[in-house]
Amino acid sequence: MGLEMLKDVPFAAWIGLAGVVFGSLLTTFGVSLTNRANLKRLEQQLAHEEKLVSRRERKERLEELYILICHWSNAFFGNYLSLSLVMKGQIDYNKYLDEIRESPAKQVDYNRISMIIDIYGGELQEAYAAILKIRDEINDIEFAHKKAYLSGQPGNLYLEPAGKAQIKLGKACDDLKNLISVAARET
């Protein structure tokens, strides 16, 4: 009985039904394509925004690093000036140590400098390593001077090597700052 009813349905109704089914399939396919295109566009937009945020963050960190290197360089120079007075015999070592304790060098965050270079400034590693090497040279000179000072020997023998090392350090800091500037501009 159910099959006979389907036979009684006019052919035009079947064509209409087929048209509705075909139209529904086309609509579903069109919506699917539109959704896929919108999803792809949204993913591209999010990727672009993430790239912009990442670039902005890198630039901010490099700007911060530039300032930290300026403070670090000034701290090195201030330390050298105080130590040179000890080398000349104008102040004693205790006075020098008091000045070091009170100096703004204590405010330089050396770990932050290293962290920013490690994370955001891979291209700065070599210049930073050069500064650390010169800093070690200066530390060796200061250690030799302290040893001589404690044994009562004159410190003026250390003025020239300390001065040359300080100039070398200042140039290395300037070189690093220039590299930071270039990296920040290219970001």
Rank of each mutant, 00 (worst) to 15 (best):
S73D: 02
M87Q: 08
R55L: 06
V21E: 13
V20K: 07
E43L: 08
G78W: 03
R58L: 03
A130I: 12
I131C: 11
E186L: 05
A165V: 01
Q166P: 00
K106V: 14
L52K: 14
G163H: 08
A105T: 04
I116T: 03
F143V: 15
V9R: 06
G155S: 00
R61I: 09
L3F: 13
V53H: 13
A127P: 03
L132P: 02
Q125K: 15
S103P: 02
D98I: 00
R112V: 05
G121L: 01
N79H: 15
A12T: 10
Q166I: 04
R61L: 05
D118L: 07
T28M: 12
V86P: 02
L132T: 14
L68E: 14
Q44H: 06
L179D: 07
I113V: 09
V182A: 06
V86S: 01
I134P: 00
L83D: 01
I138K: 02
L169R: 07
E57L: 14
S82C: 11
L3D: 12
I167M: 15
Y93C: 09
L81T: 09
R61K: 14
A144H: 03
S114W: 06
L33W: 13
L33D: 09
L25R: 05
W14M: 03
E160L: 06
L179Y: 01
N111A: 09
V108R: 01
